[in-house]
Design a protein around this nucleic acid. Structure first.
Lengths: 344, 344
DNA sequence: TTTATTTACTTAATCGTTTACATGATTTTG
DNA sequence: CAAAATCATGTAAACGATTAAGTAAATAAA
């Protein structure tokens, strides 16, 4: 065995000893420094490969004050949107040989704060996040930024912080969706949404309200139903009650899992989609076309949003002269009409 | 400002200076060492909180040779199964104040090898993984284990490696599913599966074959259709061809996205589910009950599998006298019968 | 030929924590 | 009351990589 000293671990010292060089030379050779001759570089590279040398990430991060790691902070992950967004992020991270720490807030403000506190130790070079629905106060995020760690928001933005934003056109999409329902003959449209501070929920609500106002349909406060952000039996029965009380003929659901809730509540009430109620949902689920009936969806560019969020961060790292906190990118969503809003 | 030296970063040195103590005392106080007096600990804790001290993860990991980080290595994440598994893992990781790096292999053996190579630098204390479908040779995994990093497999196991395994009863589930199809009157059942080495695919195939053999239905080689592991138009047309050629009256699909493929192919062929073809799929999608028709599924205990995989690792870290590589846990899946296999 | 520059390295300090090993003061024990 | 044990803290050497500064030899310029 060539590794006498370090209980099997090969480090730069090992290489230095084997090659009769200093660790400085090893380090420079491995980073392809111009100070090192071609032959020496080759020798170092060869023996490094031979001895299966893997650099110690902690040592190099400590010294370079750079972690080659990003944090992905998400509310949850039971969900096509965030899965696809992760894929988009990952496609860029891999390209740059970075690593990704994943954190789930489960929509809790307290957890988000706790996680941000840990991140401020220099563990990551940047953060890609979608805020928890429970987050109203944003000082934990500002604190991290002030510590020099750039934050890019995607989808769920904090509007009161100067930071990069990748979002989709929520207001407009909700507007278009509501108009679609109206065009298909709905006269009494309910918005089914979830509780929380992130602006996307407000935007979607605003889009809905604007469409209803523009199209001269009475906006009644009670036609907005706010549910909890998990698919539960409770949600189904809340919605059942709502259907019973307000008899909407159209439903716009603002998050993915509400599709299941809505279909189940309608089934329970014996309401036929689309004859009795027409349904649109913000969702990226691949099962939308094979639902009963196929679901009209607002498809959000999740992958693309994740991808561009990550790209922005790397552009910033590369020293591109961008004011990262001023980058606000909007990628449009797309209404895909299917059977659930078909005309009777 | 209290931080004169270090461009705003508060470290142990800062605390030491402020409190007129040595960094050793600070370090011990923060880790609640018995060597430090109660009052000193309090003083340290107080000023640490006041100055917003956050320990440098890299320094401490470097010194302690312990990263407080796990790797989650997955084939993909467009998928309910893995999303739920991540949630299970996360529930335990958070409890132990650990962090999780996430890696997606996209079913590629080469990527998996590359990732494992990076992990061997001591970046993580353990690995939770589901192997890529393209992974046949497993020496990269063995190498990591030999470097002292424990690996726990969940769902997609490498049978030829001594390592902890958390799996579900794939063979039995496929057997039960196939029997269910037979019980519902199917005489010509196709298995629709994906290409790859992980044993779960083999097990599901074996369960299918066993049921067919036990029940005296001719097993025809061509009734197994192998598709690519992404939901594509190609898959749909392959399946359409298969349906056309072999006219199965029952389909057992082995992975989540094949549900969509199957429903689409049937729609394209004008085949009615369940009248013309009955369908069962291994899937955890919450939309299963609202499909057209509701899909009979084999629900896998994804959350629980992730959770137990993580628990096993932490039990090992805690020095519990378990032979981690001998732990083989099987958590049963559950057949949930719905409309797609209803009797005509 | 002498001086300046370039080349190819080495030395040693540093990143921020942890920890084996002092040390000096206090308390306990014989 | 001296010796031993305990307590609370300090000193300094790690951990493994990076890098500013230095050096000796070779080459180029004056």
């Amino acid at each position: 065995m060539t590794n006498e000293n370090n209980n099997g671990k090969v480090n730069m010292k090992t290489l230095a000893k084997v090659l009769n060089l200093s660790t400085a030379t090893i380090s420079k050779a491995l980073s392809d420094s111009h100070e090192i001759s071609y032959e020496t570089k080759q020798r170092v590279l060869d023996t490094a490969a031979q001895l299966n040398y893997v650099p110690n990430h902690f040592a190099s991060s400590l010294r370079k004050r750079q972690s080659n790691t990003l944090a992905i902070v998400l509310p949850e992950i039971a969900d096509s949107f965030f899965s696809q967004a992760i894929n988009g992020i990952e496609s860029i991270i891999t390209k740059h040989n970075y690593h990704a720490l994943i954190y789930l807030t489960h929509e809790s403000y307290e957890r988000e704060v706790h996680m941000f506190n840990e991140l401020s130790g220099g563990r990551v070079d940047g953060v890609l996040m979608s805020v928890a629905s429970g987050t109203k106060d944003t000082s934990h995020i500002k604190a991290l930024q002030e510590g020099g760690i750039p934050v890019v928001f995607f989808d769920r933005i904090c509007e009161d912080i100067p930071a990069a934003q990748i979002k989709t056109d929520d207001l407009h999409s909700a507007y278009v969706a509501t108009c679609h329902l109206i065009d298909q003959g709905c006269k009494n449209i309910s918005l089914v949404t979830i509780d929380g501070y992130p602006s996307i929920f407000q935007s979607r609500e605003d889009g809905y309200k604007k469409a209803v106002a523009d199209r001269d349909i009475n906006l009644r406060a009670h036609s907005i139903l706010t549910l909890s952000n998990h698919h539960t039996e409770d949600n189904v029965s809340e919605l059942t009650k709502h259907l019973n009380a307000y008899k909407p003929d159209g439903i716009l659901a603002t998050v993915e899992h509400l599709a299941t809730t809505t279909y189940m509540a309608c089934a329970e009430m014996g309401l036929k989609i689309p004859q009795d109620v027409k349904v649109i949902c913000f969702t990226n689920q691949i099962t939308a076309p094979i639902l009963n009936p196929p679901l009209t969806t607002i498809f959000q560019p999740a992958f693309e949003m994740g991808k561009q969020a990550a790209e922005l961060l790397f552009a910033h790292f590369a020293g591109k002269q961008i004011q990262i906190e001023k980058e606000h990118i909007v990628i449009p969503s797309q209404l895909i009409a299917r059977g659930s809003t078909a005309n009777n």
